[in-house]
Design a protein around this nucleic acid. Structure first.
Lengths: 234, 234
DNA sequence: ATTGAAGTTTCCGTATACGATTTTTGCCAT
DNA sequence: ATGGCAAAAATCGTATACGGAAACTTCAAT
């Protein structure tokens, strides 16, 4: 057993396809890819300066992970239906309380500090009325605690519906009245995590999800036209 | 609209990669691929009479689905870690009770009959002591109720870890003492579903998962040598 | 103006080829 | 005989090219 050269990464260098996939996933999770953007393998390949193969690889993988949908005309965001959104709220109520409970028991001080930073950013943005910043900070907060989930399988299950959650989030964020609710929800969660209080954390996230569903339904009601677009897409 | 040549599948023809993937998945699920078999893209491609690309496609997809593991020297069965298996039991306890509860409210008579058939098959196989048949029947039963989950997102989340469940299942099935427990658990679940009793169904599946975890831990204990192979792999 | 059909474009799936990396094999020196 | 080094083989990742299918566009006829 020779450790002479230090094994660096366990798997050596990540492949181009992997790199592209990670980058695209980041964009998807940051909401940088819109509902009617089309991702075409040749374009992606050109952007990353590689051939179609790694690009195709990344795209197909994202499809399989549920982040994209393969059409005969490129790869697009999956059209989320109203029904599906409600289904995902159901899923979230099943998974996320347990997840934050585990996080409360496992999270480290630096991660807690990071979450606190996100929270402060979100507060600041709210005071400024800057929806964009608020959105980003809240997203970082969410990604932060999801990253801290010690059960990798559970974490993965939650991350699968992240993009759909993003889409819904974007919708509800449009009403600034929701911003304080979101900040307060996150603050309550953070406080519970800081106290390592698994029960309180689970309660808070559950309430938060219900609150999110309520806000979503309100947004849909206030904006029927936009919802009908998800069906017509025109 | 010309149906002269018969359009075969509604979605056009499935790609070669898809075909290969399905066939390989069948072999994997039938246990026809051993722990130290290596699947190499060129060999697979040659067998199916195509180029490397569709074969690679199928292999990579199976990797992503968790059925295979990519090594620097071909694709092999994944070494599932003990930790991962326990994580999945945790996930199952979160998701499956709700899933069967929804099934209890939504399942139709023909599907119920199908489940009953699987149950009868499993009973028969148990009496015969035929592990193989018993395994198949139990698998059909499980796939049957999973198919009936009305919440598509939840269904998908459950299906994601099906392979790992299969692997564990394979392990616990080796002890015939577990067979009656499995049949009884399935029978109890079926009975609850037949009565459209969501609460009882959820209780039964929860108990069933706990029972499965117990059986798994017992199997590991009884078979430490095999488990240590997952680390050494030699 | 609307509709239908033919032509064009776009894009995916697959084939073949090449370079890089890792593993294996063979050989030589001690 | 054993250990190490170098050559060879195996296999993966990527590049490029071709054929076909779906969608879009154009244009003419009603």
């Amino acid at each position: 057993m020779r450790f002479a050269v230090a094994p660096d990464q366990p798997t050596g260098a990540p492949s181009q396809g992997q790199i592209i996939r990670d980058e695209l996933l980041g964009r998807l999770q940051r909401g940088e890819i819109g509902i009617d953007d089309r991702l075409v393998d040749t374009a992606v390949a050109a952007e990353f300066g590689v051939s179609r193969m790694p690009a195709r690889d990344a795209l197909k993988r994202l499809v399989h992970e549920g982040y994209l949908e393969a059409t005969t005309r490129g790869f697009m965001l999956p059209r989320v239906t109203h029904r599906e959104i409600l289904e995902i709220f159901d899923l979230r109520r099943l998974l996320e309380p347990r997840a934050v409970a585990l996080v409360a028991q496992a999270i480290g001080t630096p991660q807690l500090a990071m979450l606190e930073k996100c929270l402060a950013d979100a507060r600041h943005a709210t005071r400024l009325g800057n929806t964009e910043l608020m959105f980003k900070a809240s997203e970082r907060f969410r990604n932060g605690w999801i990253d801290a989930i010690p059960n990798a399988s559970l974490k993965q299950a939650i991350q699968r519906y992240m993009t759909q959650v993003q889409a819904v989030r974007m919708l509800t964020f449009r009403d600034p009245a929701n911003h304080p609710l979101i900040v307060d929800g996150n603050a309550a969660l953070h406080e519970a995590l800081a106290r390592r209080d698994a029960v309180a954390a689970a309660d808070h996230i559950l309430r938060f999800v219900y609150e999110g569903e309520r806000a979503y339904l309100a947004a849909v009601k206030a904006d029927l036209k936009h919802m009908s677009q998800t069906a017509k897409s025109a």
